[in-house]
Design a protein around this nucleic acid. Sequence first.
DNA 1: CAGTTTTTTAGAACCATTATAAACTGCAAT
DNA 2: ATTGCAGTTTATAATGGTTCTAAAAAACTG
Lengths: 132, 132
Amino acid sequence: MKYIEKLRNSGLRPTKQRLQICEVLFDTEKTFHFTINELDQKIKDKINNKISLATIYNTVHAFEKKGYLKQIPVNSNQTYFDTNITDHHHFYNLKDGKLIDLENSDVGPINIKRKIDGKKIKSIEVLVKLED
Amino acid sequence: MKYIEKLRNSGLRPTKQRLQICEVLFDTEKTFHFTINELDQKIKDKINNKISLATIYNTVHAFEKKGYLKQIPVNSNQTYFDTNITDHHHFYNLKDGKLIDLENSDVGPINIKRKIDGKKIKSIEVLVKLED
DNA sequence: CAGTTTTTTAGAACCATTATAAACTGCAAT
DNA sequence: ATTGCAGTTTATAATGGTTCTAAAAAACTG
Protein backbone atom coordinates (compact mmCIF):
# COMPACT_ATOMS: atom_id res chain seq x y z
CA MET A 1 0.00 0.00 0.00
CA LYS A 2 1.59 3.22 -1.19
CA TYR A 3 0.22 5.50 1.50
CA ILE A 4 1.63 3.59 4.46
CA GLU A 5 5.03 5.17 4.13
CA LYS A 6 3.61 8.60 3.58
CA LEU A 7 1.59 8.38 6.77
CA ARG A 8 4.38 6.88 8.83
CA ASN A 9 6.78 9.54 7.70
CA SER A 10 4.34 12.14 8.98
CA GLY A 11 4.02 10.51 12.37
CA LEU A 12 0.52 9.29 11.59
CA ARG A 13 -0.26 5.65 12.13
CA PRO A 14 -1.43 4.03 8.91
CA THR A 15 -4.83 2.92 10.12
CA LYS A 16 -7.43 1.35 7.86
CA GLN A 17 -9.55 4.49 7.96
CA ARG A 18 -6.70 6.82 7.07
CA LEU A 19 -5.62 4.60 4.21
CA GLN A 20 -9.12 4.48 2.83
CA ILE A 21 -9.44 8.23 3.08
CA CYS A 22 -6.11 8.54 1.28
CA GLU A 23 -7.48 6.43 -1.54
CA VAL A 24 -10.51 8.64 -1.93
CA LEU A 25 -8.50 11.83 -1.74
CA PHE A 26 -5.34 11.00 -3.62
CA ASP A 27 -6.02 8.06 -5.94
CA THR A 28 -7.33 10.33 -8.65
CA GLU A 29 -5.99 11.77 -11.85
CA LYS A 30 -7.26 15.25 -11.07
CA THR A 31 -7.23 17.15 -7.82
CA PHE A 32 -10.54 18.38 -6.45
CA HIS A 33 -12.34 20.59 -3.96
CA PHE A 34 -14.59 19.20 -1.27
CA THR A 35 -16.49 19.83 1.92
CA ILE A 36 -16.53 17.31 4.75
CA ASN A 37 -20.03 16.20 3.80
CA GLU A 38 -19.07 15.71 0.18
CA LEU A 39 -16.08 13.67 1.29
CA ASP A 40 -18.27 11.62 3.60
CA GLN A 41 -20.53 10.84 0.65
CA LYS A 42 -17.58 9.97 -1.58
CA ILE A 43 -16.27 7.60 1.05
CA LYS A 44 -19.65 5.90 1.36
CA ASP A 45 -19.71 5.45 -2.42
CA LYS A 46 -16.22 4.00 -2.75
CA ILE A 47 -15.82 2.00 0.42
CA ASN A 48 -18.00 -0.72 1.91
CA ASN A 49 -17.62 -0.03 5.60
CA LYS A 50 -18.49 3.39 6.96
CA ILE A 51 -16.10 5.76 8.63
CA SER A 52 -17.31 7.87 11.52
CA LEU A 53 -17.80 11.56 10.76
CA ALA A 54 -15.55 12.42 13.70
CA THR A 55 -12.77 10.38 12.12
CA ILE A 56 -13.22 12.16 8.82
CA TYR A 57 -12.91 15.52 10.54
CA ASN A 58 -9.89 14.35 12.50
CA THR A 59 -8.19 12.92 9.45
CA VAL A 60 -8.83 15.90 7.22
CA HIS A 61 -7.43 18.22 9.86
CA ALA A 62 -4.45 15.97 10.40
CA PHE A 63 -3.77 15.87 6.66
CA GLU A 64 -4.15 19.62 6.44
CA LYS A 65 -1.69 20.14 9.25
CA LYS A 66 0.79 17.88 7.46
CA GLY A 67 0.31 19.82 4.24
CA TYR A 68 -1.51 17.14 2.24
CA LEU A 69 -4.62 19.30 1.98
CA LYS A 70 -5.32 23.00 1.93
CA GLN A 71 -8.27 24.94 3.25
CA ILE A 72 -9.73 27.36 0.76
CA PRO A 73 -10.73 30.76 2.14
CA VAL A 74 -14.31 31.23 0.97
CA ASN A 75 -17.33 32.50 2.81
CA SER A 76 -19.62 29.55 3.14
CA ASN A 77 -21.30 27.76 6.00
CA GLN A 78 -19.07 24.78 5.25
CA THR A 79 -15.31 24.59 5.06
CA TYR A 80 -13.84 23.85 1.63
CA PHE A 81 -10.69 21.82 1.19
CA ASP A 82 -8.48 21.27 -1.83
CA THR A 83 -6.35 18.27 -2.71
CA ASN A 84 -4.33 20.53 -4.97
CA ILE A 85 -1.60 21.75 -2.65
CA THR A 86 0.40 23.61 -5.25
CA ASP A 87 0.46 27.39 -5.20
CA HIS A 88 -2.67 28.43 -7.01
CA HIS A 89 -5.87 30.43 -6.78
CA HIS A 90 -9.62 30.10 -7.28
CA PHE A 91 -12.59 31.32 -9.16
CA TYR A 92 -15.68 31.18 -6.97
CA ASN A 93 -19.00 30.90 -8.77
CA LEU A 94 -21.45 32.79 -6.58
CA LYS A 95 -24.43 31.23 -8.34
CA ASP A 96 -23.77 27.63 -7.33
CA GLY A 97 -20.93 27.88 -4.81
CA LYS A 98 -18.52 25.90 -7.01
CA LEU A 99 -14.80 26.52 -7.13
CA ILE A 100 -12.56 26.42 -10.19
CA ASP A 101 -8.78 26.27 -10.03
CA LEU A 102 -6.87 29.22 -11.36
CA GLU A 103 -3.28 28.38 -12.10
CA ASN A 104 -0.60 30.72 -10.94
CA SER A 105 0.25 31.39 -14.55
CA ASP A 106 -3.31 32.64 -15.13
CA VAL A 107 -2.89 35.28 -12.47
CA GLY A 108 0.68 36.40 -12.85
CA PRO A 109 3.09 37.19 -10.07
CA ILE A 110 1.71 38.95 -7.02
CA ASN A 111 4.07 41.29 -5.35
CA ILE A 112 3.13 42.28 -1.81
CA LYS A 113 5.01 45.53 -1.23
CA ARG A 114 4.05 46.07 2.37
CA LYS A 115 5.77 44.25 5.21
CA ILE A 116 4.53 43.53 8.72
CA ASP A 117 7.24 43.59 11.39
CA GLY A 118 8.10 40.21 12.82
CA LYS A 119 5.80 38.36 10.48
CA LYS A 120 6.47 36.42 7.35
CA ILE A 121 4.14 35.54 4.55
CA LYS A 122 2.87 31.98 4.72
CA SER A 123 0.65 32.08 1.66
CA ILE A 124 -0.97 34.40 -0.84
CA GLU A 125 -4.40 33.40 -2.02
CA VAL A 126 -6.53 35.09 -4.63
CA LEU A 127 -10.27 34.57 -4.78
CA VAL A 128 -12.03 35.76 -7.93
CA LYS A 129 -15.79 35.93 -7.45
CA LEU A 130 -17.86 35.29 -10.55
CA GLU A 131 -21.38 36.45 -11.34
CA ASP A 132 -23.56 36.22 -14.45
CA MET B 1 -29.81 62.55 10.96
CA LYS B 2 -27.46 61.94 8.06
CA TYR B 3 -28.20 58.24 7.58
CA ILE B 4 -31.94 58.63 7.04
CA GLU B 5 -31.53 59.57 3.41
CA LYS B 6 -28.99 56.86 2.79
CA LEU B 7 -31.34 54.22 4.12
CA ARG B 8 -34.40 55.60 2.32
CA ASN B 9 -32.53 55.70 -0.95
CA SER B 10 -31.74 52.01 -0.52
CA GLY B 11 -35.36 51.09 0.13
CA LEU B 12 -34.65 50.45 3.80
CA ARG B 13 -36.87 52.12 6.38
CA PRO B 14 -34.79 54.26 8.68
CA THR B 15 -35.64 52.57 11.94
CA LYS B 16 -34.09 53.48 15.26
CA GLN B 17 -32.08 50.24 15.28
CA ARG B 18 -30.70 50.70 11.78
CA LEU B 19 -29.72 54.27 12.49
CA GLN B 20 -27.93 53.25 15.66
CA ILE B 21 -26.11 50.50 13.84
CA CYS B 22 -25.14 53.04 11.18
CA GLU B 23 -23.62 55.22 13.86
CA VAL B 24 -21.54 52.38 15.23
CA LEU B 25 -20.43 51.26 11.78
CA PHE B 26 -19.94 54.49 9.90
CA ASP B 27 -19.42 57.33 12.41
CA THR B 28 -15.72 56.62 12.66
CA GLU B 29 -12.59 58.12 11.25
CA LYS B 30 -11.18 54.75 10.25
CA THR B 31 -12.89 51.76 8.72
CA PHE B 32 -12.69 48.47 10.60
CA HIS B 33 -13.24 44.73 10.49
CA PHE B 34 -15.76 42.98 12.72
CA THR B 35 -17.68 39.82 13.46
CA ILE B 36 -21.34 39.91 14.46
CA ASN B 37 -20.44 39.31 18.09
CA GLU B 38 -17.90 42.11 18.09
CA LEU B 39 -20.48 44.42 16.57
CA ASP B 40 -23.02 43.36 19.18
CA GLN B 41 -20.53 44.25 21.89
CA LYS B 42 -19.72 47.59 20.28
CA ILE B 43 -23.42 48.41 20.11
CA LYS B 44 -23.87 47.56 23.78
CA ASP B 45 -20.96 49.86 24.63
CA LYS B 46 -22.10 52.85 22.59
CA ILE B 47 -25.87 52.65 22.89
CA ASN B 48 -28.08 52.46 25.97
CA ASN B 49 -30.85 50.20 24.74
CA LYS B 50 -30.01 46.78 23.41
CA ILE B 51 -30.67 45.58 19.89
CA SER B 52 -31.70 41.98 19.32
CA LEU B 53 -29.07 39.72 17.78
CA ALA B 54 -31.52 38.78 15.03
CA THR B 55 -31.84 42.44 14.10
CA ILE B 56 -28.08 42.83 13.98
CA TYR B 57 -27.81 39.87 11.63
CA ASN B 58 -30.66 41.16 9.48
CA THR B 59 -29.22 44.65 9.31
CA VAL B 60 -25.68 43.59 8.54
CA HIS B 61 -26.93 41.38 5.71
CA ALA B 62 -29.16 44.15 4.39
CA PHE B 63 -26.23 46.56 4.45
CA GLU B 64 -23.99 44.04 2.75
CA LYS B 65 -26.54 43.49 0.00
CA LYS B 66 -26.74 47.24 -0.52
CA GLY B 67 -22.97 47.45 -0.72
CA TYR B 68 -22.35 49.33 2.54
CA LEU B 69 -20.39 46.43 3.97
CA LYS B 70 -18.26 43.65 2.55
CA GLN B 71 -17.74 40.11 3.73
CA ILE B 72 -14.12 39.10 3.97
CA PRO B 73 -13.29 35.59 2.77
CA VAL B 74 -11.36 34.05 5.64
CA ASN B 75 -11.59 30.61 7.19
CA SER B 76 -12.97 31.16 10.64
CA ASN B 77 -15.95 29.91 12.58
CA GLN B 78 -17.33 33.45 12.44
CA THR B 79 -18.03 35.66 9.45
CA TYR B 80 -15.87 38.76 9.14
CA PHE B 81 -17.18 42.00 7.72
CA ASP B 82 -15.42 45.15 6.63
CA THR B 83 -16.70 48.74 6.65
CA ASN B 84 -14.04 49.52 4.07
CA ILE B 85 -15.87 48.91 0.82
CA THR B 86 -13.11 50.16 -1.47
CA ASP B 87 -11.17 47.68 -3.57
CA HIS B 88 -8.52 46.34 -1.27
CA HIS B 89 -7.02 43.21 0.24
CA HIS B 90 -6.04 41.73 3.58
CA PHE B 91 -3.28 40.36 5.68
CA TYR B 92 -4.56 37.65 7.98
CA ASN B 93 -2.56 37.07 11.13
CA LEU B 94 -2.91 33.36 11.82
CA LYS B 95 -1.64 33.78 15.38
CA ASP B 96 -4.51 35.95 16.64
CA GLY B 97 -7.01 35.91 13.78
CA LYS B 98 -6.73 39.65 13.20
CA LEU B 99 -7.01 41.27 9.79
CA ILE B 100 -4.99 44.16 8.44
CA ASP B 101 -5.95 46.15 5.37
CA LEU B 102 -3.67 45.93 2.38
CA GLU B 103 -4.22 48.78 -0.03
CA ASN B 104 -4.47 48.02 -3.68
CA SER B 105 -1.29 49.98 -4.21
CA ASP B 106 0.54 47.62 -1.85
CA VAL B 107 -0.35 44.65 -4.01
CA GLY B 108 -0.12 46.00 -7.52
CA PRO B 109 -2.49 45.26 -10.35
CA ILE B 110 -3.84 41.75 -10.62
CA ASN B 111 -4.45 40.54 -14.11
CA ILE B 112 -6.67 37.49 -14.41
CA LYS B 113 -5.81 36.03 -17.79
CA ARG B 114 -8.31 33.21 -17.82
CA LYS B 115 -11.95 33.80 -18.67
CA ILE B 116 -15.00 31.71 -17.77
CA ASP B 117 -17.69 31.64 -20.44
CA GLY B 118 -20.83 33.53 -19.55
CA LYS B 119 -19.42 34.80 -16.28
CA LYS B 120 -17.97 38.12 -15.32
CA ILE B 121 -15.67 38.98 -12.50
CA LYS B 122 -17.41 40.56 -9.56
CA SER B 123 -14.42 40.98 -7.31
CA ILE B 124 -10.82 39.95 -6.86
CA GLU B 125 -9.68 39.45 -3.30
CA VAL B 126 -6.23 38.63 -2.06
CA LEU B 127 -5.64 37.09 1.34
CA VAL B 128 -2.09 37.08 2.62
CA LYS B 129 -1.64 34.75 5.56
CA LEU B 130 1.00 35.75 8.08
CA GLU B 131 2.96 33.57 10.47
CA ASP B 132 5.83 34.25 12.88
C1' DC C 1 -56.31 58.11 12.64
C1' DA C 2 -56.94 53.51 10.17
C1' DG C 3 -55.04 50.14 7.54
C1' DT C 4 -51.14 47.93 5.57
C1' DT C 5 -46.49 46.60 5.26
C1' DT C 6 -42.06 46.30 7.17
C1' DT C 7 -39.23 45.57 11.04
C1' DT C 8 -38.01 43.97 15.53
C1' DT C 9 -37.80 40.61 18.94
C1' DA C 10 -37.15 36.48 21.98
C1' DG C 11 -36.76 32.18 21.58
C1' DA C 12 -36.55 27.92 19.04
C1' DA C 13 -34.47 25.48 15.43
C1' DC C 14 -30.68 24.28 12.49
C1' DC C 15 -26.45 22.34 11.36
C1' DA C 16 -21.38 22.29 10.87
C1' DT C 17 -17.94 21.36 13.87
C1' DT C 18 -15.73 19.93 18.23
C1' DA C 19 -15.55 17.51 22.65
C1' DT C 20 -16.12 13.27 25.35
C1' DA C 21 -15.16 9.00 27.04
C1' DA C 22 -15.21 4.26 26.13
C1' DA C 23 -13.76 0.60 22.98
C1' DC C 24 -10.35 -0.64 19.73
C1' DT C 25 -5.88 -0.94 17.16
C1' DG C 26 -1.05 -0.60 15.87
C1' DC C 27 3.20 -1.47 17.39
C1' DA C 28 7.32 -1.88 20.24
C1' DA C 29 9.20 -4.46 23.94
C1' DT C 30 9.12 -8.48 26.13
C1' DA D 1 3.02 -14.67 20.01
C1' DT D 2 1.70 -11.81 24.07
C1' DT D 3 1.45 -7.78 26.71
C1' DG D 4 1.06 -2.96 27.55
C1' DC D 5 0.33 1.40 26.13
C1' DA D 6 -0.12 5.39 23.36
C1' DG D 7 -2.61 6.62 19.51
C1' DT D 8 -7.26 6.06 16.99
C1' DT D 9 -11.90 5.38 16.14
C1' DT D 10 -16.51 5.72 17.35
C1' DA D 11 -21.26 7.11 18.69
C1' DT D 12 -23.14 10.51 20.89
C1' DA D 13 -23.51 14.78 23.26
C1' DA D 14 -22.29 19.47 23.41
C1' DT D 15 -21.15 23.85 21.36
C1' DG D 16 -21.93 27.92 18.99
C1' DG D 17 -22.75 30.79 14.97
C1' DT D 18 -26.50 31.66 12.15
C1' DT D 19 -31.30 31.39 10.52
C1' DC D 20 -36.24 30.71 11.29
C1' DT D 21 -40.71 31.75 13.42
C1' DA D 22 -44.58 34.02 14.70
C1' DA D 23 -46.25 37.60 17.37
C1' DA D 24 -45.71 42.50 18.84
C1' DA D 25 -44.13 47.00 17.51
C1' DA D 26 -42.98 50.62 14.42
C1' DA D 27 -43.08 53.01 10.01
C1' DC D 28 -45.49 54.46 6.18
C1' DT D 29 -49.69 55.83 3.17
C1' DG D 30 -53.94 57.85 2.41
